[in-house]
């Protein structure tokens, strides 16, 4: 949200509600499919119009010339006004952008207006420059410069912080990702030992906010990391904590971090499972505890356990809370 997390791919918007939020900016590889889709749609429209007007022109007497004129005007309009019309009426999206889930907005976060849509679409030709002739590829092709190389737009995108092409700079717009947000539920703490281990963490231990963030990031990503790497990564953080909590040295670092996550972010109410048997205490002076994830004495892991923070488990609490949202006090 501020300078600390200044990653290239986000643009910070301050809304009229005085809230800051981030947009993910679409780069060239996200925008190229949209461009190609739009081109395909335009070609299809062109062909359809051609066939329709051909039929009309041939079947109705004396309408041939008008059909030709309409076709030429349609061709002109679709060449120059396609993006302009769609972006100003579809809230910054053309059909291609809609399909690839990107959207054009002003750099200050407001939707684009007609002027901006006009400028950025009229300048498309400069972005395609320099045009290359087909003659370079085929000997007998006509010497017409018609193949865009996109060099100007690529250079512009690489030197601006918001991946703007020339038309975007001129219009003061940017293209952002407009994906449907995914539900953040990829934390899976299925290991039943986590809950019991968390009970042994000293009650007076208070986590700093940065530590909490690191642990949350670790817990969200650990499923994608191989077991050996998990232990390696987690041990940096876990070793001092093990010492502080006076746990056995061979307690799995991964397990400890998960337990910390569990203690910090998950209430016991949200994770009730009677099948979890309490483990022997991991304290050094007491009985031994399984030392790592893949040890043979591992407790049975039940797949039927509900994933933590799953909406399905929370619906009952949510519906039992009929206070209007804007009145709720956090």
């Amino acid at each position: 949200m501020n300078a600390q997390s200044a990653i290239d791919l986000t643009a910070v918007i301050t809304t009229p509600e005085n809230i800051q939020f981030e947009y993910r900016i679409a780069g060239p590889f996200r925008r190229l499919p949209a461009l190609l889709l739009d081109f395909a749609i335009r070609v299809i429209c062109f062909l359809v119009a051609f066939v329709l007007l051909l039929i009309v022109g041939l079947s109705i007497p004396f309408s041939g010339s008008i059909a030709t004129m309409l076709f030429l005007i349609f061709w002109f309009a679709i060449d120059w006004f396609y993006g302009l019309v769609f972006e100003s009426s579809w809230n910054g999206q053309t059909p291609g952008k809609y399909l690839t889930k990107i959207r054009v907005i002003s750099i200050d976060g407001r939707p684009i207006n007609g002027y901006q849509a006009t400028v950025r679409n009229f300048l498309r030709l400069a972005d395609f420059a320099p045009m290359v002739s087909l003659e370079m590829f085929f000997e007998d092709a006509p010497a017409v410069y018609m193949v865009p190389t996109f060099l100007v737009s690529l250079i512009c995108m690489s030197i601006t912080s918001r991946f703007q092409r020339l038309g975007d700079i001129a219009a003061g717009t940017m293209v952002v990702v407009n994906e449907r947000a995914w539900v953040p539920n990829n934390v899976k703490l299925e290991d039943p030992r986590i809950a019991s281990l968390s009970e042994h963490i000293p009650a007076n231990f208070r986590m700093s906010s940065t530590l909490a963030k690191v642990i949350a990031l670790y817990a969200e990503r650990r499923t994608r990391i191989p077991t050996a790497r998990r232990a390696e990564l987690a041990s940096h953080l876990a070793r001092p904590l093990l010492k502080q909590f006076q746990f056995r040295d061979d307690t799995s670092p991964d397990l400890l971090l998960c337990a910390l996550y569990y203690r910090e972010f998950v209430t016991k109410d949200a994770f009730v499972d009677t099948r979890v048997q309490s483990l022997p205490s991991p304290l050094k002076r007491e009985a031994p505890v399984p030392s790592s994830d893949d040890s043979p004495v591992q407790a049975p892991i039940s797949n039927s356990l509900p994933p933590i923070l799953n909406p399905s488990t929370t619906e009952s609490t949510a519906t039992a809370n009929p206070i209007p949202l804007d009145r709720q006090v956090l």
Binding site: P111, V176, N178, E179, P184, N186, K213, F265, L330
Partner: peptide, 20 residues
């Protein structure tokens, strides 16, 4: 409130969508 980073990311996208 120390929300988990993924939730924050989710909120950014949700607010962005609603904003537009």
């Amino acid at each position: 409130y120390q929300l988990p980073p993924t939730t924050v990311e989710y909120l950014h996208r949700l607010v962005g969508r609603a904003h537009s």
